[in-house]
Every structure is written in structure tokens, then in C-alpha cells.
Design a protein around this nucleic acid. Sequence first.
DNA 1: TCTGGGGTCCTAGGACCC
DNA 2: TCTGGGGTCCTAGGACCC
Length: 401
Amino acid sequence: MARLIAHIDMDAFYASVELLRYPELRGRAVVIGGGRDSQPKKRADGSHDFRSLRAYVGRGVVTTSTYEARKLGVFSAMGMMKSAALAPDAILLPVDFDEYRKYSRLFKAAVREIAPVIEDRGIDEIYVDLSDVPAAHDDAGRAIGSALKAAVRERTGLTCSIGITPNKLLSKLASELDKPDGLTLLGQGDVPARIWPLAARKVNGIGPKAAAKLSSLGIETIGDIAGADPAFLLAHFGRSFGAWLHEASHGRDERPVVTSSEPKSISRETTFDRDLHAVRDRAELGAIFTELCEQLAGDLARKSYAARTIGIKLRFDDFRIATRDLTLPAHTLDAREIRRAAGSCLKRVDLGRRLRLIGVRAGALARLADLVAPLAPNESEAAAAHEPIREYSLPLFDDAS
DNA sequence: TCTGGGGTCCTAGGACCC
DNA sequence: TCTGGGGTCCTAGGACCC
């Protein structure tokens, strides 16, 4: 039986959740992003005193904007200062991830009751394998799509856009064709008419670099890729990516819907209000660095993981990025040990330029439950009879050094 | 008035072992 | 004396996604 896959994408998710909280903003240009001080003040009469974008100062970017703000040219990932120039009267709201996570759980639970095979793709989108949902085939895909939309709307008050096709690649493209509040069904036969006219950049996996290179070769649309000689694609993009471009342009994709996965890394990073210098701003930098390590240790503990690789990330004032990492003899979730490892990574970087961002990453993760604390010598022999075991070091809270 | 934070995956070279 | 492959781990960078 052919597969049937849905891609469900919540419409302007963060902004839409905020509109549930502030319905008086419906129909207005609203931008989510920036720092905590964009919290609206509550007036004595119960109404809210919203901040406008024009008052924003800082280095933040737009996380989401309402469709009204998008009409003014304000999109996700745009610098807030630039957005303020385009839409000074837009309302600015701070991000509230806890609230978005709550609605994320609600919408996923609503979908799960209809179709349980779900792949998480972040807070606001999922893939759903409908292949084994009763009556999903036989042209009933549209009915199931409508049922999914109705369920999401009932549980959250929010709209979503859905694409239903034979695979993830096509469904992702299809869900965008009729946004917002859309439902688009496509078969393989629809690829030439509906997919080929789209810009190559629309394909999940073709980013700004690949799109620019394609364009320089005279390839602008997905149809252009499909029309290109596979040997030409292989010659310019390598064996793996070239072959994938060819397959993708014909709407072919066999990737399964993956219902569970373990995290590979956990990280914390921060961009400074102003660029910092390793020598001149040493104290400030050191304090931030240590705090990031402590936050990372807290994240590991809260999620019950330990890491064997500790890495750092630096972004310089010219936007160049440097990374260094260090693999330890044993897993750890101890803040001071993480700080030590990160510090030794830092020593291997040329710190001549000023820094814009610093980050700390924990990789080579293992679940705490799969590890065991270091054993005292007299216990080692007894333990040797059991499963081979990896060690980790426990957090130490006994002194403040 | 440039450009956040949290992730995944891929490539590629060198070390080291068999 | 010269010359092999293959496999895994570690590290650095980069593209891409939400």
C-alpha cells in the first residue's frame, strides 16, 4: 500500500498564541521577539499598554510576526531594528516559550487521537503517517485532513495548514501552498503542475547557499532541477547532494516518519549587548562563560543526561564562527568540570578580535540511567561481574571554587 | 539600522589500530 | 625495504532547519 503522509504546520504560531491572550490585537501588525522589557503594562481599567516596535533598542531578531506585520515586510529572523524602521507602529511582544509549549502539547495531543504515528519537527510542526489510519486512502485523505484541522482548532483555538501527499518532502511543500488555514492534497501526478513552478529554495534542504549556486547555474525552480542532466548536478554538487537534488525535484522521498529520537547535544549561547574583548572585558566575559556552563549543567541534570564531549562556540565581531571541543575520559554533568573543559577549549582560540557571542555545548550524551557513578576500589571487583559500565562524575556542590 | 538561540547532519583530515 | 587497505574516534567547519 502506498504511503500517505501529512505535514501539519501551525499558522504564525507564536503570534497566534499571543492573540489568544490579547484578542484586542487581532487585525494589527504584531511582532514577537526581543527582550523581557517589552512586556505590556496592565492599566488600572484592565486594558493593556502595549509597547510599539519603534521603541526597541538592541540586537534581537523577530521570532514571529502576524500576517498584518508581514504585509509591511517584517518576517522571522529579521533584525528588530530593521523591522522597527519598516513598521514602527507594530506592537512588540516578548517571547513566552512556556505558553507556546503548552499549546504545542495541546495541538499534538489533538492530532494523536486521530493519527498516532507522529514525528516532532519542533514546537509548531509535525509529520503524521496516515498510511494505517482507517479510511485514509480511497480519496478520504481530504476528510481526514479536515478532521485534523477541526480537532486542532477545537483544542487550541488556532488554525494550521496541512499538506497530505505520498511523502514528507511533498507534504512539507504542500502545506505551504495554501497558508494560512489551508489543506492541500497532492499525488505524484501533481508534481509537474504544482511543484515544478516553485522556487528551488522552497525545498526543505535547499538553503541560501545551495539556492545561490543553483541560480548561478541558471537553475531557479524545482522544475529546472528536474530538467537538469543528473550528471550535471552530480558534477556541481557532489555524489550525495547531487543525487538527492535530482530525486527531490521529482518529488521522490522514502524517509520514514520517525516517532522518537534521543537528543545528540544540548547547548547554551548568548549574544552580548555589545562586543566584548577577551582581555579588556575579561571579568564580564568570564562571568557570562561560567553562568552558561552552570545553566548547561542544570539543563543536563533536569533532562537526566551526562556529556562526554564539551564544546564552545564563539562568534566574532565580523560574524566569523569558531568552535572547539574536547572529549573527556568519562561522562559528566558537573558545572565545574564543564567549566574547566570549556576553559581549555577557549585557550585554543585566537582571541584577537572582539566577541559577539559565546556558547557552550554538551555532546556525546548518555542517559544518566545508563551510566553509573564511579565505584570505590573494593566495589570494583563485585561490579566487574556485571555489565560493562561507563562512569560519570556527579555534580559537586560541596565547595564554591 | 544588519543579522537570536537551539538544534541536526555532513564532510574531511589526522590519529591510531588491525 | 616498501607498501596496502579498512574501520573508528576525535576535531573543525559549514549548511540547514525551526
